[in-house]
């Protein structure tokens, strides 16, 4: 996308010539588009359609009642709480990690990047399990926690921890390439002009990465609110107390309350759609910012 806007002046002429020599026949073209659309329709549009149609299947009254049931409200509150803790913590971590990795050269850097990405390659169920093995009654710290009457597993802290784990890399992995690409000239100029470290960070670096930061936060939040496997392992499924929205959907579904399950699911689907819209907008702004700073750096060098 960015390339097209970047070289827009040159493209039209080449493109016209190119289609003649390197394009496919119109029929082939439309068949390929048709097959791709069918595939996406089957796997993307159909699941979305069924969520909303099932949510409204029993009428708007049932829909509202399902969302306003005390257990549903408690689940919504817990989901907001878990995301409200996990996202800011991973945001601060992401900025710190990106600053260290993106702006400095040091030994073991690529190992550190691999370790930060690690939570993405661990199964959600295993992500929950590792906290059960650490904090559960049978776990390493379990007896100590029990003596002090502290509850982590089958309680809110466990849910928050599992949420932090599964959303751990999101912000960091968005920011690292951004800070790397931007180089150090602007920060060096700021500190040469007498700015303190924090001033340089807040006035120069942060504005330069704000769209990438927002992008990471949006993805992190979507996953935090939607996580199922990891949270399911540590939650204990206590109704009204340790059920997040996805877990509440599961309980309703398994009790054959399909309309209610899909009503809560439709909220999560709306969150997913809002995430995609925000992501598309921010992606566009972020690419433009990157292109601008690349242009700026290109001129400066």
């Amino acid at each position: 996308m960015a390339t097209t806007t970047f070289t827009a002046g040159k493209l039209p002429a080449t493109r016209r010539v190119a289609t003649a020599a390197t394009g496919e026949p119109v029929a082939v073209r439309w068949i390929l588009i048709g097959v791709a659309a069918l595939f996406l329709g089957l796997f993307i549009f159909l699941p979305l359609a069924i969520v909303f149609s099932q949510a409204c299947a029993k009428g708007i009254g049932v829909y509202w009642a399902s969302l306003r049931a005390p257990d549903a409200l408690a689940a919504i509150r817990l989901t907001l709480l878990a995301a409200g803790i996990a996202v800011p913590l991973n945001l601060v971590f992401g900025v710190a990690a990106a600053w260290a990795i993106g702006k400095f050269e040091f030994v073991g850097k690529s190992l550190l990047i691999t370790l930060i990405d690690l939570p993405f390659s661990v199964s959600p169920v295993v992500s929950g399990l590792i906290y059960v093995l650490l904090f559960g009654l049978q776990g390493l710290l379990g007896p100590w926690l029990a003596r002090h009457d502290l509850h982590v597993i089958f309680a809110v802290p466990g849910i928050v921890l599992a949420t932090i784990f599964v959303t751990f890399p999101f912000v960091a992995r968005e920011l690292i390439p951004l800070l790397q690409a931007q180089g150090q000239e602007e920060e060096e100029a700021a500190s040469a002009l007498g700015a303190s470290g924090w001033q340089t960070f807040f006035r120069v670096s942060l504005p330069n990465i704000k769209w990438g930061l927002l992008y990471g936060v949006i993805l992190c939040n979507a996953r935090a609110m939607g996580e199922f496997g990891a949270v399911s392992v540590v939650s204990g499924h206590i109704r009204g107390r340790t059920n997040t929205m996805p877990l509440h959907v599961e309980i309703l579904y398994n009790e054959y309350q399909f309309a209610a399950a899909f009503a809560v699911a439709s909220l999560l689907a709306l969150l997913a759609l809002a995430t995609l819209v925000a992501k598309t907008v921010v992606e566009w702004r972020a690419r433009r910012q990157l292109a601008e700073s690349a242009l700026w750096n290109g001129e400066a060098v």
């Binding site: 913590l89 601060v92 971590f93 710190a96 990690a97 600053w99 260290a100 990795i101 702006k103 400095f104 050269e105 040091f106 030994v107 550190l112 370790l115 930060i116 690690l118 939570p119 661990v122 590792i130 906290y131 093995l133 650490l134 921890l161 932090i164 784990f165 751990f168 150090q184 920060e187 060096e188 500190s191 470290g197 340089t200 960070f201």
Partner: peptide, 29 residues
């Protein structure tokens, strides 16, 4: 360990990164 750089904050940023990574990911694993 680290190339010289005129930018500040390396110690704090890397220290926090490693601490948080250890607490959330490495020690439980």
């Amino acid at each position: 360990f680290k190339k010289r750089s005129s930018l500040p904050g390396f110690g704090l940023a890397l220290g926090y990164t490693v601490l948080y990574l250890s607490l959330i990911v490495l020690i439980p694993l």
